[in-house]
Write a protein that binds this DNA or RNA. Structure first.
Lengths: 180, 180
DNA sequence: TCATTCATGTAAATAGTTACATGATTGC
DNA sequence: GCAATCATGTAACTATTTACATGAATGA
């Protein structure tokens, strides 16, 4: 399977059964710096994973809500493991429209760029909160002990990425204010 | 216009006339950390930009090759400026499949992750070369003086991003080797 | 009561990659 | 002569977002 949304979904379900809604939220709260999924991807993927036997729908015992809990199957687990162990992965660089603007701007644009860099900074600060929250929940919730070191490595990645960018904003604002 | 490929193309042409091939190469050599385009996007975009009057096809004087040089028009320039000055931009976070694998791995997977982190490291080292080359060419080629400070800011972003990730690889390999 | 969060989904549009086809030119 | 690079494009596929529709439950 080369469908990455499937793998992300299987990954989340490898922790515990969840609904489509839960999966999106989980990814948002944990991996969002390097991986996100939208409902438009998740719900169709759940259906196809189920029909392929990688996950199964749990009986909802006493749930009033119209919710669908899915659990990973053995077939799903071995698929996940095969992917993790295979030596290939792709980096999709991502697109940063602000950087692109700056790249193509002239000194006459400087004045308009300042508030945009400030907005960017604000978005980064919001992300900082996500990590703080996640570090807390990793302590509280039952993240398996043998997974902690590796999960922490990914959090560290996110924290460092955000810190680096905040630092860059600071520097860049100083430059922009000099030009303006 | 909310079509970002168009804006990227206009941006490149704001420096100097170029062919579709040139545009792809330019972006690869300069903005690739935060922006890339493929031929499949560029060529159709050039046609639509031309029919919208944002760019125009230059007469090829004495060019043996079957090449199409495009130049930006006034309409194209004002469109570019409008975009740069408008206070909105989106960040498409990008996807890092290696991080996702690590996030969902268990300690049994450690052994298989080590070479993957090493591959990642190697890819980063290759990127370092791109920046070195770009810094050089910025000196040599005629990048307008008033644009240098801002362009440099985007190079710095890329350099810091790569440096941060190399550092992370180093740390992470140390952790993985402890577990293994 | 009322806003927020939970919850599932679809449709339409947009974006973007990859593989292929084709051939000229340049530099070794 | 031959490999690499220049050069343009298309077709098929895959991925992804966004907006919309709908409504229940929770908590203040």
């Amino acid at each position: 399977m080369k469908h990455r949304t499937s793998l992300a979904v299987l990954g989340v379900l490898s922790y515990e059964p969840a609904t489509g809604y839960d999966i999106r939220k989980f990814l948002e709260e944990t991996t969002s710096v390097f991986w996100k999924e939208s409902y438009g991807q998740i719900y169709p993927t759940l259906l196809s994973l189920e029909s392929a036997g990688r996950i199964k729908l749990l009986e909802s015992k006493g749930d009033k809500r119209d919710k669908k809990m899915y659990a990973i199957t053995d077939a799903g687990r071995s698929e996940l493991s095969r992917w993790i162990r295979s030596r290939d992965f792709t980096l999709k660089p991502g697109r940063n429209e602000l950087l692109l603007k700056i790249f193509f701007s002239t000194k006459e644009d400087t004045h308009w760029l300042i508030p945009q860099v400030q907005d960017y900074e604000a978005q980064l600060v919001r992300q900082t909160g996500i990590y703080a929250g996640f570090r807390d929940s990793m302590q509280a919730d039952g993240f398996p002990a043998d997974r902690r070191a590796l999960i922490t490595a990914t959090i560290v990645f996110g924290e460092q990425a955000v810190a680096m960018q905040l630092h860059w904003c600071h520097e860049t604002l100083a430059i922009l204010e000099t030009i303006d």
